[in-house]
Design a binder for these strands. Structure first.
Lengths: 294, 294
DNA sequence: ATTCATTATAAATTATTTTTATATCAACCG
DNA sequence: CGGTTGATATAAAAATAATTTATAATGAAT
C-alpha cells in the first residue's frame, strides 16, 4: 500500500473536498478519486459518503478509524525521516527550556567542549510543555525538561536528575520584601508576571492557586526570565519561579513558600523510547548523566 | 512510499539475507535489492552494509532506526485492518481472563442477551498480561482485565470497576485448613500450584514472595482454575487466587491473608485510545459499565 | 581452479498511478 | 424551464514504477 494514498485520505477527511485535496498535493482530481477507491478496495469498505444532495462529504465509521491510523502512520514516517537526517549528519538536537539552559547547561557545555563534541550539538529552546511535543515529533533528539511530577510519558523515557522548590520573587521595595518566608495564600491580592503556558511553572502555579481557592490576577506573560525579572523589579507584579531560575540581582528578593506538600520543579533528561541513539548521542547522554547526576 | 518496501526491509534486518526475504514474500531476489535501493534513496542513507568478507549483512544505525519505525508502521497498518474488519462486521471482540469470565461475565451476558446484542459479541480468552497485548494489536476491541495496580498503559484506556483481595487455597485435609487467617510468610515451605505467567496473579504473588524473602517452590503451572483446584484438593500444593476465582467446593479451604498493604486484584474495563468505537461497541461498553459499576 | 551462495545489474515485462478528456449529477439562477 | 456552475466519476492514453528474467560479479569454501 502506498502511503501517498493515506496522505490523500487524511487530507480528504479534513477538507471534505476531492478537488481541494488534488490541489493541495498538486495532482489532478481523478487521482484522488482513484486513491480513495484503492483504499476502499484494500479495506473492503466504504470510507466516504458522497452526498451530492447536501454537497457535503461524510466519512464513515471505518473512514474515521482509518483516518486516525493514517495520521499515526504518516507522523511516524515523518519522524523516521527527521531522525535519520539527524543520524546521518551526526547532529544531536537538545531541547532546553531557558531556565534549565541558564542553570545547568553551562556545566554540560564545558564537558562537551572538552570532548570536542559541542560542534555536533544544536539546541532548541522552548517551554517544557512545548519541547515535550518537539521531542515526540522528532524536532529534538534529547531534552532536559522541567515537570512537577516525575515524568512518565507515552513513548518517552525520562530520567530525573534534580529537584528544586518553587519560590516567589518580589521587588526589593515591595511590602513583602522584608519577609523571608510566606504562605502562598498571602499573595491573594498580588499582581503576577508569569511565564506563558508552554512552561511547567504554570502547572505548579495553578496547583497553588487551586489549593488556595483564588483566581490570580496575571498582568503579563513572557517567555524570558530577564523580561519577567525586570518587570518584577519595577513592581509591575510579583513572580513565581524556581530558585535556580533567577540570577542574583539586588532589586529583586526571593521568598520561600511555607505551604505543605508543594509541587517541585523536577528536572529530567528525556528522549524517545523508539529512538536508536547514535554513538554521538549516547556520548552526549553520558555527559548529561555524569554532569547532572548527583 | 510503498509499505511493501518497509515489510521487505523489516524482514531483511532479521534474516540478513536478500534471497531469504524474497522467498518469504514469494518474489524474486532482485525485487528486494531494488526495494532496499528505493528506501536508501528515500532516506538518503545507506541502510545495510554488504560485508561479503564475513558473509554477514550489517544494518547501519540509520537502518536500525528505520527498522524500529517500519515495524511500528506495519503493526499500525495491521491493527487498522483488524479494526475495520470488526467495524464492518459489527463484531465486538471482548477479551476475558477466565476468572473474570466466570465471575463477572454471566451478569454482563444476561444484560446483553436482553438487548439482543449477544450475537455481536465474540469472546477471547487468555491471561490479563497476554490480553493486554491482544488488545493493543487489534485482536480484541474491549477487554476486562485484572491488574495489581490501577491500569495506566500507553495507548490503552482503563476504567477500574472492582477490587478483590487475594486468598490462599489449601486442601480440606491440609494442616493449615483449620486456620482462617494466615501470614504469607507461613507458606515458606509449601509447594505451590499457580497460574502461568500470562496472569496477573503472578505479579501479585511475586510481590508477596519478594517481601517475605523466599523463593517459592512452584510444582505446577496451569491456565485453568479447575485444574489448579483439583491439584490443590489432592494436596499437590496450595494456590494463590482471588476470592472470586474459586467456585465453592468442599475439598478446598480458603484462607485470608493477614499481611499489611497487600496487592489487590483490580478488575478494569480496557480499550485502545486510538479506537473509534462503533455504536454496537459503545452499547457493549455501556452495558459493561452499568452492569459492573457499583 | 571450480563450485557455491549471495547480491547486483540491465533489459523486458507487467502493474500501478496519473493525466487528459469527457460524462454525470444536483443545485442555483434568471 | 434551460443554462451555468461546482463537484465527482469514468475511460482511455500516457507516464511511472515495480517485478521478472537472464546474467554478471564477488568472495568463500572445497
Amino acid at each position: 500500500m502506498n502511503t501517498k494514498d493515506l496522505a490523500y485520505f487524511s487530507d480528504l477527511t479534513q477538507t471534505k473536498n476531492f478537488s481541494k485535496v488534488a490541489q493541495d498535493f498538486g495532482v489532478t482530481q481523478p487521482t484522488i478519486t482513484m486513491a480513495i477507491k484503492r483504499l476502499e478496495a484494500e479495506f473492503q469498505t466504504k470510507l466516504v459518503l458522497r452526498d451530492r444532495t447536501h454537497n457535503d462529504l461524510g466519512v464513515t465509521a471505518s473512514g474515521e478509524q482509518l483516518a486516525v491510523h493514517a495520521r499515526a502512520i504518516l507522523a511516524e514516517l515523518d519522524l523516521t525521516h527527521q531522525e535519520i537526517t539527524h543520524l546521518t549528519q551526526d547532529q544531536t538536537v537538545l531541547g532546553l527550556p531557558p531556565i534549565i539552559e541558564n542553570h545547568y547547561f553551562p556545566r554540560v557545555a564545558a564537558h562537551l567542549q572538552a570532548q570536542g563534541m559541542l560542534a555536533n550539538l544544536q539546541t532548541l529552546e522552548g517551554g517544557s510543555v512545548w519541547l515535550r511535543q518537539a521531542l515526540r515529533d522528532g524536532q529534538a533528539d534529547l531534552a532536559l525538561l522541567g515537570s512537577t511530577a516525575p515524568l512518565s510519558y507515552k513513548s518517552l523515557v525520562a530520567e530525573a536528575f534534580d529537584r528544586q522548590p518553587f519560590r516567589i520573587f518580589v521587588a526589593a521595595d515591595h511590602p513583602l520584601a522584608k519577609r523571608q518566608r510566606i504562605y502562598f495564600s498571602e499573595l491573594r491580592h498580588e499582581k503576577f508576571v508569569l511565564f506563558n503556558s508552554s512552561f511547567v511553572h504554570n502547572t505548579a502555579f495553578n496547583q497553588f492557586t487551586r489549593r488556595n481557592h483564588f483566581r490570580p490576577e496575571v498582568v503579563f506573560r513572557a517567555n524570558d526570565t530577564h523580561v519577567i525579572m525586570n518587570l518584577v523589579a519595577q513592581n509591575v507584579g510579583v513572580t513565581f519561579l524556581t530558585a535556580i531560575g533567577a540570577q542574583h540581582r539586588d532589586d529583586v528578593v526571593q521568598l520561600e513558600l511555607l505551604d505543605d506538600a508543594q509541587p517541585e520543579f523536577i528536572a529530567s533528561i528525556v528522549y524517545r523510547d523508539s529512538h536508536v541513539l547514535t554513538p554521538t548521542q549516547q556520548q552526549v547522554l553520558a555527559v548529561l548523566r555524569t554532569t547532572l547526576g548527583e
